[in-house]
Design a protein around this nucleic acid. Structure first.
Lengths: 142, 142
DNA sequence: GCTTGAACCTCCAGCCACCAGAGGCTTTAT
DNA sequence: ATAAAGCCTCTGGTGGCTGGAGGTTCAAGC
């Protein structure tokens, strides 16, 4: 039987985060001691590990909910999980592309700045005038 | 003289966002009509363009505040603006590296999944067992 | 058995950078 | 004169947590 603190340590989660997951129904309500403290077993450890690992891979919580549901039904088709992972991959690739464009632009700013007064600062100049940008970096989100 | 709506259109900003910027002191309080509607001039247009462009390059609002301040004082040294841009570049590069690791992992998951029941799903299996990961993808943040 | 101190409890507020909607007023065009 | 588009303020929500206040419980040492 694990306390919330040791569960937190084992999974690299903050205690508050575990309580938060319980609050939004992502983690089940665990058993309690007579005094009202939470106690966890192996099932909860596995579930939390799954959640944390999915988070590290960038899946949002509502998607993780779906993945957990799939994982709880071993006879369902795998297609859905596969589709979710593919979507995530696509998003990661889009974000990569955007970040690369940003990097290019920032590098250019920094390289062209040769010190001096801010009046002649290349960094500020580029920020002032969007038309100087070579790359398109329209919406962010990452 | 621009209405808030036309300023929004020109800069690709939502109207509410402009009011938000005003509320947090990033944009100045503009002049008003007799009826209380905001009217903007070219200075505000320039300032908002600067803000939006900086946002697109991923600078957070408090950093943009610094950049605006530097831009308002043409005789200050350029070093600070340069340092800010370099920091941002570094952060972008870190995020790129993390995203690349994620992409690798997601690709592997997707490639290894050959359909079937969720019980045998490679995607779910990898999520369950972190030790199968080749790459380290510790904290996210993007 | 008693005391200490670490870990637990609940509840509330805040972070970032907005976005949406309710309910009402102003402007502009016809 | 009227209509509709756009403006106003104010409130509350988003995602995914994180921190703190103020109080209780647990486990270990004496």
């Amino acid at each position: 039987m694990l306390t919330i603190g040791s569960l937190a340590k084992k999974t690299g989660t903050k205690v508050q985060t575990i309580r938060y997951y319980e609050q939004i129904g992502l983690m089940p309500e665990p058993g309690r001691t007579g005094g009202g403290q939470r106690r966890y077993g192996d099932a909860e450890l596995d579930r939390l590990s799954f959640i944390r690992h999915s988070r590290q891979l960038g899946f949002p919580l509502d998607v993780i909910r779906e993945l957990l549901d799939l994982s709880d039904h071993p006879d369902k088709s795998c297609d859905e999980a596969d589709a979710i992972a593919r979507r995530q991959l696509k998003q990661v690739e889009q974000r990569l592309a955007r970040l690369k464009a940003l990097r290019t632009e920032l590098k250019r700013m920094v390289h062209e700045c040769s010190g001096g007064r801010t009046a002649d600062c290349r960094v500020l100049e580029v920020l002032r005038d969007h038309t100087e940008c070579l790359t398109q970096h329209d919406q962010m989100g990452a």
